[in-house]
Amino acid sequence: MATATQLVFVTGKGGVGKTTMAAALGLHAAGEGQRVLIVETAGDGSLAQLFGKQQLAPKPSRMRPQLDAVRVDARQLVEQYFSEMLRFRWLSDRLLSSSTFNALTAAAPGITEFLLLDRILGWVEPGVLRRKPYDLVIVDGPATGHALKLLRTPRNLATMVPGGPLGRTARRLLGLLGNRLQTQVVLVGLAEEMVIRETIETHTAIAGDLALRVARPVINRVLPHHFTAAQVALIEGGPAHPLLEAARFSAAVRREADRHVGTLRRALGVTPILVRQVFAERVGIDDLGPIGRSLSRVVLNGSTETA
């Protein structure tokens, strides 16, 4: 029996490098021969830009050998779902163009969250018609607060809507997210006090309350550890000069980073993966190799569990 498609859901505070991590992980896995799909949910085109494109297509398209990417946006999800459900094209067109319907779907909380998960489910569950399923689906998810709501949606819907196809889908989603051999959440953070606190809170909420599998947190943009304690003392005592101010700055930032990482480790009982700051104007696809390698050591070991 083929192993089930792995689902990795990447989240973290806005701007911490979720897209970078999702892409790095995807490229690495594709390089190892897995068939990978990366799902961009932010709609800001940052994943597309990494692959040298303006925007991703709403259908999975090939970025690299073995690696597809797709963009999902709320409006498109609502349209697709209802036109599939309604079958009669003229009817769905009419419904979708009615202001009532549009106002309702834009205003009703939770609809787009549900549809996003439903779409992901379609890429993860073995389809009858699909030639070859993906081995790995990586969701470049929304920022933490929103991601938490997203991950809670199936549970809420399953409670709210006990019967009907909606309730059934909600329960299938619950099953998928809750399957620890299949699904894991990757939290990305920075070694900054408030981000670390939020990472701890989110980890607790997802691993605890929602009982989902959460990989070791990834702490991005850590400055290198250049100086020994004795050297730092020497630098501190040195003259006021940009060269030494820069060294003091880096040493202080790194010291703070280590302190915050320590807080995280004590709070969660896990050691995070540190990803080094890239010293360039923009993180490019060539910077992702080493990042993907270190991430894959902890994130993708789910595939060995199922094997």
């Binding site: 400055l223 290198p224 250049h226 100086f227 050297q231 020497l234 630098i235 040195g238 003259p239 000069h241 940009p242 060269l243 030494l244 820069a246 060294a247 700055f249 880096s250 700051q277 010293f279 360039a280 104007e281």
Partner: peptide, 26 residues
């Protein structure tokens, strides 16, 4: 490089310059 730092061991000076380059890039 300040004069006093020029007398520090070469390895440390190299690291200082590297660190500066990195922060300069940022």
């Amino acid at each position: 490089v300040p004069e006093s730092v020029a007398r520090w061991e070469k390895g440390l000076q190299k690291k200082l310059l590297r660190n500066y380059e990195e922060l300069r890039a940022l």
